[in-house]
Write a protein that binds this DNA or RNA. Sequence first.
DNA 1: CTAAAAAGGTGTAATTAATACACTAATAAT
DNA 2: ATTATTAGTGTATTAATTACACCTTTTTAG
Lengths: 227, 227
Amino acid sequence: MYPESECFNVAVDCIVFGFDDDRLQLLLVKRRFDPCRDCWSLMGGFVGRDENIDDAAARILENLTGLRDVYLEQLFTYGEPDRDPGGRVISVAYYALIRTDRLDSEAGNRYSARWFTFENLPVLVFDHTEMVDKAIRRLRRKSLIQPVGFELLPEKFTLTRLQKLYEAIHHRDLDKRNFRKRILSMDVLTRLDEKDRVSSRRGAWLYRFDKDKYDRLISGGDHFEMK
Amino acid sequence: MYPESECFNVAVDCIVFGFDDDRLQLLLVKRRFDPCRDCWSLMGGFVGRDENIDDAAARILENLTGLRDVYLEQLFTYGEPDRDPGGRVISVAYYALIRTDRLDSEAGNRYSARWFTFENLPVLVFDHTEMVDKAIRRLRRKSLIQPVGFELLPEKFTLTRLQKLYEAIHHRDLDKRNFRKRILSMDVLTRLDEKDRVSSRRGAWLYRFDKDKYDRLISGGDHFEMK
DNA sequence: CTAAAAAGGTGTAATTAATACACTAATAAT
DNA sequence: ATTATTAGTGTATTAATTACACCTTTTTAG
């Protein structure tokens, strides 16, 4: 500890994205303590004494969702002196991409967690709306150049569903043929010998993201790119 | 202050980019205190009690360079528990783009500051090399989609010099005609009635970046893009 | 049993953007 | 007057992106 220097509470806040009902969703909790008790908020918590910040984010997320090994990326650090009326807290925001089908709803209940679509976001405490805003912009950019979208889908998915995901993230319609042409031409998916018959009478092929193929793409000097 | 929570020293480290001699340069300081006294390091300092983190970065940068109103962008927060052997410090890294011609060399001397090219970087303390690495990647990406490059040039510059800057940032040669075509087609530069005769017998037109034109470009729904 | 409904799946032509490329112009120094 | 040096300019080729429409498969309802 450098004694001549000031000392701050450091927290982590998690922007938790999910994909359900063909919409991008956000998992929010109701604060259980003052200030702003009962307001909607991002899931957060304090960093521990000897804890790495990434680990703190993962711990807090596991607490909320019951999930480990989730895609988690540091977003930005918020440090306005008066951002939290309860005292000065410097907060490192992370965003997470989770598969809603894996969610442990038990865990969520403890925190009165609820999914919200982006069209329906409630007012959030402090600067959390700003955090969400930055997170969605980051996700949009990132999803174009890295295969992060798959983190939001179940292991097996149809191309239509993948397209709906990109449409939800970017909030615009895509052409079916061009979309398929592009994603298939990169050769990062494996088609399974299995069809999904839930959303279609005819049945649609199921695919999974193939990390090995992706690694080969990259080491060949190419990029993942979904413009 | 949330008393149940831990408390951390929070610092800021600045990755300071300059452009001189047709090369991208980095301003480093020699640490004047332990641990790692006399090692090369990024310029850093602690955040003050009621100080906004951006302001802390600006203060530290002004201390080093004598410059205000410098382009400064938060990069990433580093919080490994043992990243600083002198004690746990969470550091918010910023990168700055400065015009080397405006630099107050007096200020720099106080910190034994020196410019280094990227081919010649010394070993840096702690995780500072990682910070630099992230900063250059961010600058590369950012310079393609926002007009941040101009922050590294004097007010007035020739197109050749602007091209050299992009070449230095991206570390690859660009085609002169294609480069000019592109930058001029966006109409964000104003050509002055003035020529630079330092680097050429014939003289080259001087230009300046025109914020108004840029704003018009953006509000017209277009983007700055130097692919 | 056949018609209708609903999603799956496919290819090509037109347009636009990116790239490659080489000479003349102006001026200062010799 | 010649040479050396950087400035400045346009076009043709190639590659990438976009726009666009029909047939297939299967279930359900009449």
